[in-house]
Design a binder for these strands. Structure first.
Length: 497
RNA sequence: GCCCCCAUCGUCUAGCGGCCCAGGACGUGGCCCUCUCAAGGCCAAAACCGGGAUUCGAAUUCCCGUGGGGGCACCA
């Protein structure tokens, strides 16, 4: 990590316009990792200068989602900090002051063109198949005169005075130097006619005032990256280290996910929104691990990482600049890995809401006993109720056809069930240590296969064809219930004759 | 249309001139284990976008194509 010499101050600066998605989550994660690794600060800043786009509750959801992931900020709108306020809507005057400074130094100018006029210009440009840009009318105005008009209250915006000629060279940490002709950079609006600053100005000002050392953001900022650099240079400030992350593509790899596609995903049990993932049965540990590896690698072979691992091992120079398709089946894999990494009580606690959601009254002590045989069998938490719900049910309702073992008749199956019940009753207890060896002898004596006999017992006792191991399950369910369920199955089989 | 970025198995990636007839992981197929399902173990199929150039030697460097992505607002 050659570039990092001291504690990094890194900011995550979302606008509160919707749900937090995987792309933002990854950016926030990398921000956080870099800050923690260097002993610096992770700052949360809300970019809400556009009041029209503000979504009620988005800021709260954002914080909840970040905290769910295990990302805590050192400075932010809710906890404050030495460089606040951390909400751009509360910093309006600061931006105005800096914009003024730019006008005075000749790096920006007042523009009185009306939206209507601009619309016309743009249409003409479109007809001539030219690219969309400001025609420069007000750039030629006398600064004194313009200042007077602005002071008199004439509606205006403030535009950046981009150099007409020359080339701007900027440096991205992942891609190296990027050169662009200044003629390609428009005279962007810095301050709107309502007095609110735009991202281009606000973010640069905040990053400077908040002493940000590394800016990690999405590659959608690459086209305006030179402009940002130019603004910073106009102020004479020092530039941060720039890191532009690639975008996430939909699973097919063909383009970004549309709003519609994102919504439809949930039908398959997946989502790109953090707020959905918890309910879908994903562990924040798994999401962090998975998302960290989309665009970053450690050594090309190690893949299991916890948050502390990542804090220790993350590095900017192992970031990959190419776009990555989201692979949800790999999330399932990581989730399984992290579920198996949880200790018993922890997993049990996390499982409780999923059982309750399915209407089960959970006996926590019993759930703890189930964990060892359930843990390796679920990839997501929401699979637990259907795999292990029978432990908490009073009655199970096996399908008749499932009670009849493969290749056998109902009569034979009933006889087997009766024999099993009789044999189990001779035992002091039905612990796996006692019951399994005994039942295997019985199976042998009867001349059937273990699969046939245990299959009948499984269906009778759990009501399912697929379940955790039979004998371990029986012990947890308890002798009385096991016998009762076997009796019922026998009756069910007899009645079918 | 203009500008910018990217390009290794289906997907995520390792590779930063010879160690590569390309390694790991997910997924897929097979086998083993096995009371079902998992987990685990073993094996297999599967990729350097195309063309030039540099070099004794290129997946790795440079051009040109092509493909993909992103951006072109008084949004962020």
């Amino acid at each position: 990590m050659p570039e990092i010499t001291g504690p990094a101050r890194v900011r995550f600066a979302p606008s509160p316009t919707g749900h937090v998605h995987l792309g933002s989550a990854r950016t926030a994660l990398y921000d956080y990792l870099l800050a923690k690794q260097t002993g610096g600060q992770f700052i949360l800043r809300i970019e809400d200068t556009d009041r029209k786009r503000y979504v009620e509750g988005a800021e709260e959801e954002l914080m909840t989602s970040l905290r769910w992931l295990g990302i805590e900020w050192d400075e932010g709108p809710d906890i404050g900090g030495p460089y606040g306020p951390y909400r751009q809507s509360e910093r309006k005057d600061i931006y105005l002051k800096y914009a003024q400074q730019l006008v005075e130094s000749g790096h920006a100018y007042y523009c009185f063109c009306t939206p209507h006029k601009l619309e016309q210009v743009h249409q003409e440009q479109q007809q001539r198949k030219e690219s969309y840009h400001y025609d420069g009318t007000c750039r030629a105005l006398d600064p004194k005169e313009a200042a007077a008009r602005a002071a008199s209250g004439e509606p205006h915006v403030i535009r950046f005075k981009t150099p007409k000629t020359g080339t701007t060279i900027v440096k991205d940490q992942l891609r190296g130097e990027i050169a662009i002709e200044n003629s390609q950079i428009d005279d962007y609006v810095l301050v709107k006619s309502d007095g609110w600053a735009l991202y281009h100005l606000a973010a640069m000002v905040d990053d400077h005032e908040m002493k940000i050392t590394h800016v990690i953001r999405g590659s959608e900022w690459l086209p305006t990256f030179p402009l940002h650099s130019l603004i910073i240079r106009a102020f004479g400030w020092q530039e941060p280290t720039w890191v532009h992350l690639s975008v996430f593509l939909k699973p097919s790899g063909k383009g970004k996910m549309s709003k519609r596609e994102a919504t439809d995903l949930i039908k398959d049990g997946y989502s790109i929104f953090l707020k959905d993932l918890e309910g879908l049965g994903y562990l924040p540990e798994a999401v962090v691990n998975w998302v960290a590896l989309m665009g970053w690698s450690y050594d090309g072979s190690t893949e299991f990482f916890t948050m502390p691992d990542l804090v220790e091992k993350f590095s900017l120079d192992r970031l990959n600049p190419s776009p990555a398709a989201i692979n949800f089946t790999k999330l399932d894999h990581f989730n399984g890995l992290h579920i198996r990494n949880l200790d018993t009580n922890d997993l049990a606690s996390r499982l409780v809401p999923f059982f309750e959601k399915e209407g089960f009254a959970v006996d926590f002590d019993k759930l703890v006993k189930i964990i060892p045989i359930l843990q390796v069998r679920i990839a997501t938490l929401d699979e637990a109720p259907q795999m292990a719900g029978f432990f908490f049910r009073n009655k199970v309702k096996p399908e008749l056809e499932d009670l009849i073992a493969k290749g056998l008749t109902a009569t034979e199956s009933a006889a087997i069930a009766e024999r099993c019940l009789r044999e189990l009753r001779t035992l002091d207890d039905i612990s796996p240590e006692k019951a399994e060896p005994h039942m295997r002898e019985v199976v042998e004596a009867m001349g059937y296969s273990a699969g046939q006999v245990f299959g009948i017992m499984r269906v009778a006792i759990t009501g399912q064809k697929v379940s955790p191991p039979l004998f371990e399950s029986m012990e947890i369910i308890g002798k009385d219930t096991v016998f009762k369920r076997l009796e019922k199955a026998i009756t069910q089989l007899r009645q079918a004759l």
